[in-house]
Structure formats: structure tokens, C-alpha cells
Design a protein around this nucleic acid. Structure first.
Length: 475
DNA sequence: CCTGGAGTTGTCCTA
DNA sequence: TTAGGACAACTCCAG
């Protein structure tokens, strides 16, 4: 008896079983062969960074477990991996959920064409965006460049986000090992050194953990979200970004769960969180319509800007040794946990770009490698926003003063000493600016500047004036 | 077709 | 001590 071949379900940035349209379609078609391909070939310059890979390792392990160990892994050019699977297993249907990075769009279009020419059915779905970029335009047909009209007119007036799909029932999985399939370990997602262990001790990874976190956020912190989200010492943000990036959670699930919570929570926390989800969408929208966003200034006026080449400066910044505690705390948080609080991301970005006059791409590259929530769209759009070269960008004269920001948003210096514990014994007011503490106070606190904690690598006032002059000259 | 208000996240100076 | 204004330029859209 000859059985029908399984349909191929290609997991990408949708590592979940619930609210997964491609999975649902595959299940309805019969037996399913679920696969994941680590495609560094087509990703080229945008291969996942180290922190993302470490996350991915655990997310795939969780997904594999939910699939009873039937998820099959591959490595290499997805075009040839899929072609060969289709050929050897006589597969006649392939399903996936869409991704929106330019290189993935190109690659997927090639695969789609190739499969179509072999009479293989290909169906792709939207699983990661509330509003897909191609559908949102201004009245004149061009894409939006400003967030608020994009969100208010383009998105909200168009259609409400669809309801999440229920998990597909009676999943029948293909249980033969496909030719060329590898073990998860063979993807070599974890670095040789042990850095990722400490990093991932901060996180619970996978679909179940993501759901729990969404649940906890809605019940515990959503009410105070608007105010609390600015204070890095408080656990008042959702920290859902890596789960959303890898698709352990869909934005539809988050949107509707938060809308539901709004009935009980009240206040403007829920609306502000939904706006943040919409900023994620806006970044993806910009990358879709302006595919050079990761490399080139969105506003070409910045092309003539002369950034400084300062390799030793970048190193101080990366390692959290600038001598400005809020900046150093942020970068150390990034290194130790794969994450940085949103407020602090803006502060360290402003410091690198405006005070150090270093190209926003240097910062974006570092974040790309270190963030567990690294996302090409959000990372590129946000760095350009900080630089002033992006869409709806910050004005050039908005230069964060790291001391004022620290005093305002971490008044007790709790966040500072969490990542710069050497400053703990200093009185709170000097935690924000240890170089101003009197020598005897530093001595009493056991801090020798330049030894236990760095001296400031630059002068805030003069670098601010330098940036104002240089940026003003662009206009 | 023109016009004016509003727009994620600040800082500094002056009165 | 504190509040208000200046600091651009541009996009979007309602009137």
C-alpha cells in the first residue's frame, strides 16, 4: 500500500504550536513533516548573533519536545535543503509563515518559484504581524514615514487584528528520519565558551514560558506599565521581545490578551503597551518598504556626516567602561543577560552617537550580536531613530545627559549598583557621577577611580556642544 | 491648493 | 525653585 507523502511544515520565526496558521493548514492536509533550517548561507551579513543563537537552541529544544521529538533539523542553503527533501520524499505540499527581512523575502520567493515549477503546492501565511506591510499605504499610495498616522490611520482604521487561532487538533507527524536531517546539537548554536550559561539563566525559553510571561505581565504589571516602563530598576516592562521575535508568542495573542486585561486593569497601561506592539510593526513596515534600512541612512542627508573612527572608544562602550554609571550598567546588563532596558538602550545609544560621534551602525552591530531579542527591523529602525537619520526620528538637539537620565529614572541608583556593584558604598547622589565625589568619600567607599571603576572617557558638556554643531551643519 | 497643528522617549537657559 | 521657551525640519492630514 502506498501512503500519501507528508506535507512539509517549515518552522522559521514562528516557534510555537498555538496560533500558527501554517501548522494548522499542514495539519488539515494530513501527515506533517516539521523541519527547521539554520540558513547562514542566505543570511550572509545578517546571520544571527551569538545571543540569538543561544536563545534559538533552547527555543528549538522546547518546540521539539512539544512535537514529541519529531522536529527535524537541517543546516545550509534552505533552497537546496528544501529542493532535496521535496525530491527524495516526493513531497507535494510545503507550508510556512512569512518573514519580512529582505534576504528572507528574496530567498522565499526563489523557493516558491522553484516549487511551483515542480508542481508542488506552496502556501505561506501571516503569523507574526498584526498588519502586514504590503497592505498599509497612504492615500497617495506611498508608505508612511511617521508613526502616529501609520498607526492611527493606516492600521487601526483598516482592520482590527485577527483573533488568535486555536491550537490544531490531532497532529499526525511523519516519524521517519528525513535524509540529511541533523541533531539539534549539530547546528552548533552554542558558543564554545560558557558565556551563554549565565546569559540564559535569566530567561525561561519556549512557547509555554512565553505564555506564562504574558499572563504574569497582564495580571501583575500592566496597570503600572505607562509609568513603570521608564524605570530600569523596576520589573515593569513585559520582556516579551525575544519571545515575539522567535514567534514563541504571536503579536495577536499578546494584543488580544492585553485588550482583555484592559477591562479589569483600566488606566492607560494597556493602550501604551499596544502602541509598543505597533512600534514593532512600524519597524518591520519600514524595513519592508526601505530594505536598505540596516545599512544606509533612511535620511540621505546624513550620508555626508563624518563619524569618528575610535576603536578603543567603542571597546570601552561595549564592555561598559565609559565611566558613566548608567551607560556602563546598561552595557553590562546587555553582556550579562542578553537584554537591556528600553530607557537605557536610548541612553547608551545617544551616548555612542552624540557624545562619542560613532556611527550608529557600530552600535547596531554590537546589539545584533548581544541581544536575545535582536531583530533586524527593530534594531535598524531604532538605531536610526536615535541617530536622527531614521523615520520620525529624534531631533538632533535631543542629546541625553546620562547623569540627568540616571537621576531621573533610577533615583536610588538601584539599577546602577546591580550592574556596577563597585559603586554600592557611595552615597546615592554620587552613584550617578562618582567623579564628582570628594576624594575622602571615594576612599571611604573603597572606590579608586581608574582602578575599581573607570574615570569618565569624555566630557559631557564639550561633546554635547560638538555634536550640536556637527549635526546642525547637516541642515 | 494652501495652511496650520501635531508629532514616543530632552536639555538648557532665562525669568 | 520652577515653569516656559528655544532648539529643526519634515511628514501627514484635517479644515
Amino acid at each position: 500500500m502506498k501512503s500519501r507523502p507528508p506535507s512539509l511544515l517549515w518552522f522559521r520565526q514562528d516557534l510555537r504550536l498555538a496560533d500558527n496558521p501554517a501548522l494548522r493548514a499542514a495539519v488539515e492536509a494530513g501527515f506533517v513533516l516539521p523541519i527547521y533550517i539554520l540558513d547562514d548561507v542566505n543570511a550572509d551579513a545578517w546571520k544571527m548573533g551569538a545571543a540569538s543563537r543561544a536563545w534559538l537552541q533552547h527555543s528549538l529544544a522546547a518546540l521539539n519536545q512539544s512535537l514529541g521529538g519529531r522536529l527535524q533539523f537541517f543546516r545550509g542553503d534552505a533552497r537546496s535543503v528544501i529542493a532535496s527533501l521535496v525530491e527524495t520524499l516526493k513531497i507535494d505540499a510545503v507550508f510556512w509563515n512569512r518573514c519580512y527581512e529582505p534576504w528572507r523575502i528574496d530567498r522565499d520567493a526563489q523557493i516558491k518559484a522553484e516549487l511551483a515549477s515542480r508542481d508542488v503546492e506552496v502556501r505561506s501565511f501571516n503569523a507574526s504581524l498584526l498588519w502586514e506591510p504590503g497592505t498599509i499605504r497612504k492615500k497617495d499610495g506611498t508608505p508612511y514615514r511617521v508613526f502616529t498616522p501609520y498607526y492611527q490611520k493606516g492600521c487601526l482604521l483598516l482592520a482590527p487584528p485577527r483573533q488568535p487561532l486555536a491550537q490544531a487538533e490531532s497532529l499526525q507527524l511523519h516519524d521517519l528520519e528525513a535524509p540529511g536531517s541533523l541533531s539539534l546539537q549539530a547546528l552548533e548554536l552554542l558558543p564554545r565558551h560558557d558565556w551563554h550559561r549565565q546569559l540564559l539563566a535569566n530567561w525561561k525559553i519556549g512557547e509555554a514560558a512565553a505564555q506564562q510571561k504574558l499572563e504574569a505581565f497582564c495580571t501583575d504589571t500592566l496597570g503600572d506599565y505607562r509609568r513603570g516602563r521608564d524605570f530600569p530598576a523596576i520589573d515593569a516592562t513585559s520582556r516579551l521581545s525575544p519571545h515575539l521575535h522567535f514567534g514563541e508568542l504571536s503579536p495577536h495573542q499578546a494584543w488580544h490578551r492585553v485588550e482583555h486585561a484592559a477591562m479589569h486593569v483600566g488606566g492607560d497601561g494597556p493602550a501604551h503597551f499596544l502602541r509598543e506592539l505597533a512600534w514593532r510593526e512600524f519597524s518591520c513596515y519600514l524595513l519592508y518598504h526601505f530594505p536598505h534600512l540596516p545599512e544606509k541612512n533612511f535620511n540621505p542627508r546624513f550620508d555626508g556626516f563624518e563619524w569618528l573612527q575610535d576603536d578603543s572608544g567603542i571597546l570601552h562602550w561595549q564592555k561598559g567602561n565609559t565611566g558613566f554609571p548608567i551607560v556602563d550598567a546598561g552595557l553590562r546588563e546587555l553582556w550579562q543577560t542578553g537584554y537591556m532596558h528600553n530607557r537605557v538602550r536610548m541612553i547608551v545609544a545617544s551616548f555612542l552617537i552624540k557624545n562619542m560621534l560613532i556611527h550608529w551602525r557600530s552600535g547596531a552591530d554590537w546589539f545584533w550580536d548581544c541581544l536575545v531579542d535582536a531583530d533586524l527591523a527593530s534594531n535598524s529602525a531604532s538605531w536610526q531613530w536615535c541617530a536622527g537619520s531614521g523615520a520620525d526620528a529624534a531631533p538632533y538637539f535631543r542629546i541625553f545627559n546620562p547623569v540627568l537620565q540616571s537621576e531621573k529614572f533610577d533615583p536610588q541608583g538601584e539599577y546602577l549598583i546591580r550592574y556596577c556593584p563597585e559603586l554600592t558604598a557611595l552615597p546615592v547622589r554620587y552613584r550617578h557621577k562618582p567623579w564628582e565625589a570628594p576624594p575622602e568619600m571615594l576612599q571611604a567607599a573603597g572606590v579608586e577611580l581608574g582602578v575599581d571603576y573607570p574615570r569618565p572617557i569624555l566630557d559631557l558638556k564639550t561633546t554635547r556642544e560638538r555634536a550640536l554643531a556637527r549635526f546642525k551643519a547637516l541642515s
